[in-house]
Design a protein around this nucleic acid. Structure first.
Lengths: 123, 123
DNA sequence: CAAACACTTGAACAACTGTTCAAGTGAAGA
DNA sequence: TCTTCACTTGAACAGTTGTTCAAGTGTTTG
């Protein structure tokens, strides 16, 4: 592991304390990772419009039940979605408002910052 | 691909239109994915406290320059961080407020919802 | 109780991704 | 200009992850 000198560089005296604890950071990373797959994010976006059962989600995305179920398992492991049995069916919904905000925030960022394109200066 | 019947199930007439366009969703997924690695998220969290050069980030995390640089490359590809040359050094900073919010939001979610633990009811 | 329905799960394989090393680039200083 | 510093990049390997299939679970209906 290289540790370069970097001497003579006037680093301002930055606060070097950890802003966040390691455990929260790890869980946040897992949360992001779960949302970081287009197929799963599509499910989350669908659920942002209202709860749905697995069959509905499968039909909407034209995927097999198994595939959708596996994705939901990942999402559930990170508390992104919750499930609730309703007779024969199992309905899924977003776990809380944080998730919804997270998704909208990401879509906002994605919408405004085009990759590989210099943004026009704010006139 | 199995398409189960799901008949006789009274699905409320859900709005089946796409809430988000496919391109934005893909970019949002890429954004989440970039943040979904603990090592990269740690860098982002560090930059949330103020900009820093690669050497600083490497020293803080006790990693090699190369490793950190590769991570920054991924973050930069998703417009999460921006860089600015300052003489010999290249300073990195978070690209915009969206990113900061995204991270704080995720940390909030991570902090409040413990995985594998039934939350106490809000007394 | 048995069958059908609506999912869930484990395992296996292919595809993807992160890390590392070695070589390369560009700016600043001798 | 040559060297050094600060960083970047491509390639390769190892570890991770998503998808799929086949088998399993729990609930309702006949």
């Amino acid at each position: 592991m290289k540790t370069p000198d970097c001497s003579g560089h006037d680093h301002p005296n930055r606060p070097r304390a950890k802003l966040v604890n390691a455990e929260a950071l790890e869980r946040a990373a897992r949360l992001f990772r779960a949302l970081g797959e287009e197929s799963r994010l599509r499910i989350v976006a669908a659920l942002a419009q209202g709860e749905a059962c697995v069959t509905e989600l499968a039909q909407a995305s034209e995927e097999s039940l198994s595939t959708v179920s596996q994705r939901l398992r990942v999402l559930r492991a990170e508390n992104i979605v919750v499930r609730r049995r309703q007779g024969k069916h199992i309905n899924y919904a977003l776990a809380d408002a944080h998730v919804t905000e997270l998704v909208f925030n990401a879509l906002a960022h994605a919408g405004e910052s085009q990759p590989r394109r210099k943004p026009a200066n704010k006139s």
